[in-house]
Simulated assay, not measured.
Amino acid sequence: MELRGFDDGYGVQVAAWAVDEKEVALLSGRVAYPFPEELRTSWRTADADIHSYLLFDGERPVGYGEVWLDDEEDEVELARIIVDPAVRGRGFGGELVRALLGPALDAGYSEVFLRVRPENAPAIRAYHRSGFVDVPAGLMEEWNDGQPVPYRWMRYAGAQVGAGELRG
């Protein structure tokens, strides 16, 4: 397995991994299915604090994810994680998350978080196996305030926990 920076030439392929409206929304922020053609070249943000990656099995891309850096909060969020449906259930999601932890931790922020849809049991299991734990219920409720859907928020347990709150 090898984590590589995302190349826009893979955009159509990654967009096709979204198998329903929920997955399209998680990748693009738009509720639509199939992935809207007009978004296929623009769904990724050009924000300098967002770094996009592909996980390769040999020369085949099998997973996509982003590392979002937040200077203000001194944290990193792993986001928009998706695995090729043809290889789901084979451990590639966990491999992808562990690979994304490399650049996330190398960024030097004090915390690493991710959010997941509560009904996505396979992803939650992969995140637990990769060292993530749920944030306290009160923080989860606070962080879900204003979100378009409720998420299960998780923190990487190996990250440094600062004095005070987990997140500002």
Rank of each mutant, 00 (worst) to 15 (best):
Y151L: 13
D49I: 08
L139R: 10
D8R: 09
R30F: 06
F92D: 01
E2A: 14
D8Y: 05
A79I: 02
M140E: 11
E2G: 08
R90S: 13
E38W: 08
V24L: 08
L54K: 00
E75N: 12
G65H: 01
L100S: 00
V112K: 01
W43K: 14
E119S: 12
V149L: 02
G168S: 13
K22E: 14
L3I: 11
S42E: 14
A79E: 10
I50E: 06
L114E: 01
E37P: 06
G9H: 09
D71Y: 06
L39D: 05
E59R: 15
D71K: 13
P150W: 07
E21F: 11
G164E: 12
V12L: 12
V112C: 06
V149P: 02
G65I: 04
I82G: 00
G138E: 15
G29R: 07
D145N: 11
G164C: 15
N120G: 09
R155Q: 10
G9D: 05
E95F: 08
L139Q: 11
G146D: 09
T45W: 14
E73N: 15
L78A: 08
P122Y: 12
P122S: 04
Y127G: 05
R155F: 08
G168F: 05
A121Q: 14
D47F: 08
F56V: 10
P85Q: 10
R98T: 14
D47V: 11
V97F: 00
V135W: 02
N120T: 09
V116E: 06
R88P: 03
E72M: 14
R98Q: 15
G131I: 13
T45Y: 14
A15D: 00
